[in-house]
Design a protein around this nucleic acid. Structure first.
Lengths: 240, 240
DNA sequence: AAGTGGTCTAGACCACGGC
DNA sequence: CCGTGGTCTAGACCACTTC
């Protein structure tokens, strides 16, 4: 028996998931001791190295912390820094309900600079989705998304007023989003944006230009967003 | 011989560093094949698991990529996204020379809100370092750093006009910086900042408040920065 | 002293990739 | 087919923390 005890999942992954589920269920709380390597090996009838592998992989993901001579402990709840999340997901993670108003959802013909951001030919047709984001019944952001019309033309008949763009792409188009590169700067509200966001003209806004890539490395969505900086701050974590 | 072959460093780390140095020296280029687990085990007279440990740790750091059945390869050069870098390091990475003007370097007595950001008592004394950053002979950012005067009082006599704060802290104070949490928003230039940065009053600026933590998890530096958004955009990568 | 994580051995079989 | 990485065993000694 050099391998899996019948089914195809490696032993160390089974052990991983047992611990992970126990944490998820709240049976193990941050700071609690996790079964030691030797206990795990005994319980799961597995060698020490295998039990160790399970704990090592959990530690790498930040789920547990190990202290030599002391034991393995459930790590404090991780804060989601630098996570690519849809507006709905962001709101949900703060315990708020997402509200948004669909201003525009159509196909546009010629927008060469945006097509270039998506690595498309200048005359490639694009779906343009413009939405006003609300929080606490007040507008706080204007977001304009662009996607290839060839691939995502079907979006124009999608219920974007309600559902999240991310979930529609992932569910209906089978797109797996992987990461995004963002450029952030400050700009002054022009008259249209000022009116939509309910601020005086010239108010400093956070401008974020975002290219979202699929897991295959293809530029999939370009998002141009303007955020009221009195209602929204960007959180970033950087590592040395 | 169950352990280290005389000196104190583990075998897997020695193997690691041999490979790492070979990459650093340019003998191994991105895409090149790295010695296989079995070769490493043979060459370094070590068991397979130990050779494997070396490659696993290099893979976790993104130095190499492993493909089952194929081999282990040097990873493509990593792009420095979400990296905590000093101003000098940022400039250097873009091939520019850092220029900065020291406006203020003194100890201040009572700044409770900033002390709180560093998890210090309200009346804790602080070192305040204010610098105007230049690029291409034009000012583009104002950065104010605060540190505990108790720990870093010696900074007031340091050559901050020339050297980087990071390198002084790391070299002279033995501080190992680990990560930073940043809050980013947009704000309008007040009269003093407008004059220093050479822009009209009310110009939208990027404001970044940064708490930099040591590797021991201690809040060490608080940085308040104002950036001309016509000269500087923030780049972020987010992951799903 | 007892228990923990960290390192290590000398093998093994499996699944996969490229020739 | 052979070589690769992926998983696994049944032990071992060391360094460290806790009591």
């Amino acid at each position: 028996m050099a391998q899996n005890g019948r089914n195809g999942t490696p032993a160390y992954q089974r052990i991983r998931s047992v611990i992970w589920k126990r944490i998820e269920a709240g049976q193990l709380k941050p700071g609690d001791v996790v079964d030691s390597e030797r206990e795990l090996a005994r319980i799961h009838r597995v060698s020490l190295m295998t039990a160790r592998h399970a704990l090592t992989s959990l530690e790498r993901e930040g789920v547990v912390q190990r202290r030599r001579g002391a034991g393995t402990f459930v790590a404090p709840p991780k804060i989601h820094f630098n996570k690519l999340m849809s507006y709905s997901e962001q709101m949900a993670s703060r315990g708020l309900v997402a509200g948004s108003e669909l201003l525009c959802n159509k196909i546009i013909d010629y927008e060469p600079e945006i097509a270039a951001r998506l690595a498309l030919t200048p005359n490639h047709r694009l779906v343009k989705v413009e939405r006003l984001r609300h929080a606490a019944n007040e507008p706080f952001a204007l977001e304009v998304c662009y996607l290839s019309a060839e691939e995502f033309g079907g979006l124009v008949s999608a219920p974007l007023g309600r559902g999240s763009l991310f979930s529609i792409l992932e569910r209906d188009f089978g797109v797996e989003l992987a990461h995004a590169d963002e450029e952030v700067d400050a700009t002054a509200a022009d008259s249209r944006i000022a009116e939509l966001l309910g601020v005086p003209r010239g108010t400093p806004l956070l401008r974020i230009r975002q290219v979202i890539y699929s897991s295959k490395g293809k530029a999939t969505i370009y998002v141009l967003g303007f955020y009221r900086s009195d209602r929204h701050t960007l959180l970033i974590r950087r590592f040395r």
